[in-house]
Amino acid sequence: MAALGDDREDRALWRRWRDTTDLTAAEPDALALAAYAEGRLDEAAAEVVELWLAEHPESIGDIVAARAIGQRPPRLVFNNIVAHASELVPGSENVVAFRRPAVSSWRNALAWASIAASLVLVSFGGFSMGSSAYANLSGTSVSDGSSVDSPDNTGSIDTYFSDDSST
C-alpha cells in the first residue's frame, strides 16, 4: 500500500498551498507544548498549538519525543557532564558548614594555662642554665686571669711546668 505522501499531485497541491500562506500562529510556550504532548489541552488550546506546529514543522519532533518518554531507557551520563551542571549552582545558605565541636570553657582555660606554665618553666630553666653557665665560666676566667696576670703569682706557672716536668 502506497504511503499518503507518495501522491505527486497531492504533494504539488500542498506545496502550492504552503507557498501562498503566511505564518500567523503565535508561538506557544514550552509548558503548552508539553501539555499538548500529554493530551491535556482542551480543543481550542490544542488548535493554537497545532496551527503553530503546522507552521513550524521542525518542532513536530519535540512532540513525538515528549510522547515517547518512558518508552526508551534513560541514557547513561558521563560524570563530567553531571559535575559541570552541578557547578552551575553554588553552595547555598541552607547547607550547614562544618563546625568544630564546642570545647568547654574550663578545658579551654586549662589548655591556655598549661601553655603559659610551659613557657614560664622553659624560660626559667633556660635563664637558670644560662646564669649558672655564665657563673662557672666567669669564675674560671677570674682564677685563670689572676694566675696569669698577677706578677705575684708567677710561681704558679713554674709550679705548673715543674709539676709537668716532674711527671
Binding site: D10, W17, R18, D22, E47, L53, A54, I60, G61
Partner: peptide, 21 residues
C-alpha cells in the same frame, strides 16, 4: 493569501507532517 479557514489547524498539521516531515 489563502482564506485562513480553508484548512483546520489539525488538517494543516497533518498535511505538514505528511509532506514536510
Amino acid at each position: 493569501r489563502l482564506p485562513d479557514v480553508l484548512l483546520s489547524p489539525r488538517q494543516k498539521l497533518i498535511v505538514t507532517m505528511i509532506y514536510e516531515r
